[in-house]
Amino acid sequence: MAALPVPLPPTKMAAVEKRRPAVAPAANFPDSGRTSVSQAAAAAESEEDFLRQLGVTEMLRAALLKVLEIRPEEPIAFLAHYFENMGLRSPTNGGAGEPPGQLLLQQQRLGRALWHLRLAHHSQRTAFNNNVSVAYECLSASGRKKKPGLDGRTYSELLKRVCRDGGAPEEVVAPLLRKIQCRDHEAVPLGIFRTGMLSCFVLLEFVARAGALFQLLEDPGQAVADRRVGQAVLDTLEGALSAGDMATAPTHYLEAGSRLGPDNLARALDRAASGRRPSVPMAREEFLEKAAALFIAKVKPVG
C-alpha cells in the first residue's frame, strides 16, 4: 500500500499539511488533546491568541483587502503569489541570513515595485493608483540614502524594466522613455512617477493591440503587409487620434470611435488597395514603430 504512486505535493511541508486526522470532521480545529467543552473553548481562545501574536490575523486581513481591491480573476493563484512575494520581502522568514549587497537590495526593491505595479490593470484606476503609491514607497524607502525619495536613475531603470517585461520592441518604446525619463540625480515626485508608469502601461497595451492589428493585415506567408494597406490603417488611426483636439473629452471619444469604425476603415483600405503604384512591403517593426509614434506624440514630456 505504501508504494502507491500518489502524486507528491510540491514541498515536504505541503505533504505534512495534508495528513489530517479524518475522525473529527465536525470540529473546526481537530486537536487531539481536547476532550471537554471547556477545554475546547480554552483551545479556541489560545488559538486565536496564537494567530494574533504571530501576526497571522493581520497578514490575512491585509491579503483579503488586497484581493477585494483588485478582484483578481484567479484569487487563489493571486494569494499564492501575494504570500510568495511577502516571503521574499522579509529575509527573516526563511531567507538567507547574510545581508544582501546593495545591488541585490536595489534589484529586490525594483522587483517588489514591479510586482505591485502589475497587480491591477491600469483600467482599474483606483486599485492601480494605490499600487503605484505603494510601489513608489517601496522604491523611495531606501536605507542607504540619507534623504528618502526616488531618484531619476531608479525611475528610469524601472521604466525600462516595465517596457522590457511588456515585450514591446526596444526601438518602439524608446521615444516614450526619452520623453518621460528624468535625469539621474533628479528627485522624482509621485505625480510624475504615476504619469510615467501609467503612460508606460498604456503604451504597452497600445503596442500589443497594434501588433494584433498588424497580424490581421500581414501576408501569412511572408510576415509583411502591403505598404498601402498598412499606411491606410495608420492614417486612419492618426486621424482618429488627432480628432477634436480642441473638443471636450466625451465628444472627442465619440468622434475618434466613429473614425475608427468599420466602414470608415474599410473605405480607407479600399482606397488604398485600388491605388496602383506597387510598393515595398511593410514589416511588423515599422508598423509598430509608426503606430507607437502616433501615441507617443500625444504624451506630454516631463519637466
Partner: peptide
C-alpha cells in the same frame, strides 16, 4: 519556514489541485 512560506505553499497546492490529497 515562516508563515508567508506556509501560505504560499498552501495556495500553490490549491492551484495545483494537490491540496485535497488525504483530506477529510
Amino acid at each position: 519556514y515562516g508563515i508567508a512560506r506556509f501560505f504560499t505553499d498552501y495556495f500553490n497546492s490549491v492551484c495545483q489541485g494537490t491540496h485535497i490529497l488525504f483530506r477529510e
